[in-house]
Design a protein around this nucleic acid. Structure first.
Lengths: 152, 152
DNA sequence: TATAATAAGGTCAGGGAAGGTCAAACAGCT
DNA sequence: AGCTGTTTGACCTTCCCTGACCTTATTATA
């Protein structure tokens, strides 16, 4: 039960999250606060504040840059999305459409959204040879669902 | 909510635009108002009030010079979809996102749909090298918008 | 009427301020 | 030793902002 730096930073962010519902942090500041390299913050975010765990992070570079972390509005979709994004072989059209239909039945997406997703994941829309096509399909569908997991 | 100078000036112009429908500004005056270099105004216009985002700017130099900003006419979804599906070079990420944002402003797509489309058209979502990526992006976005124009 | 002065806006390179990525070193277990 | 997870540092990309210099239009003046 040793308390690594990553654990400490995770707790820090979680506590902020519990307090305010959304964290806006400056990478350099947080790193200085914990006396570590800035990239350590990325490590914590990448390993602990993932879609699988129901978190959404966004960031902006350049002057006035920031990193924001919050809980996903619909973690279930986030988990599905995460699985798709990690599927090493991608997903074929049939299973993808079945998945979309299940999401529709479950009320996770509405009709128009489902229609869009079906259209995007069609063979002809992607227009690439296998096995690339299935990979791109999985990434696109995953990205779309991930985005939805964060929307009210 | 970072609020850089550029963001503030953008808001200023947007609010004027919302109020009067058209903004006529004096570069030096606006710069003085925000205590910045005049060229900063050009930066804001160049990065935020572009044709791709649906703005038209015109200007005149010399005595009595000015810069005017207005909104361009809203796009039609069917036409856009058709154009995308036929674009020989596809579409880059920036223009694609600007296009989606315009569709959202025009009420052609709602927030969730726009978020999905932005996610799907991200570089990392497609995950292919150029120039293939821009092509797939155009096909997917075109297919999605086409699906929407069929709905309802 | 030329010409000069003045009053705008335009362009572009460059510096600075964020955050991102990735491989390599490191630490703690089994 | 080997494996897993942690931590760092070097290098990269994106975004912001300015200053020096340029172009264009109007106005005053010879």
């Amino acid at each position: 039960m040793s308390m690594t730096l990553a654990d400490a930073i995770e707790r820090h962010i979680l506590s902020q999250l519990a307090q305010f519902g959304e964290v806006a942090l400056q990478r350099v500041e947080l790193a200085r606060l914990y006396g570590c390299a800035p990239s350590q913050i990325n490590y914590v975010l990448a390993t602990r504040f993932t879609p699988e765990r129901g978190f959404v992070t966004e960031s902006r570079r350049g002057g006035g840059g920031y990193i924001r972390v919050r809980r996903a509005a619909h973690p279930e979709i986030g988990r599905i999305a995460a699985a798709l994004l990690e599927a090493p072989d991608g997903i074929a059209q049939g299973p993808a459409h079945a998945l979309i239909e299940r999401c529709r039945e479950a009320g996770l997406v509405v009709d128009r959204e489902a229609a869009m997703l079906v259209a995007v994941t069609r063979r002809e829309a992607i227009g690439l040879p296998l096995p690339l096509r299935d990979l791109v399909r999985a990434r696109c569908l995953g990205a779309a669902l991930l985005a939805l997991s964060d929307e009210e």
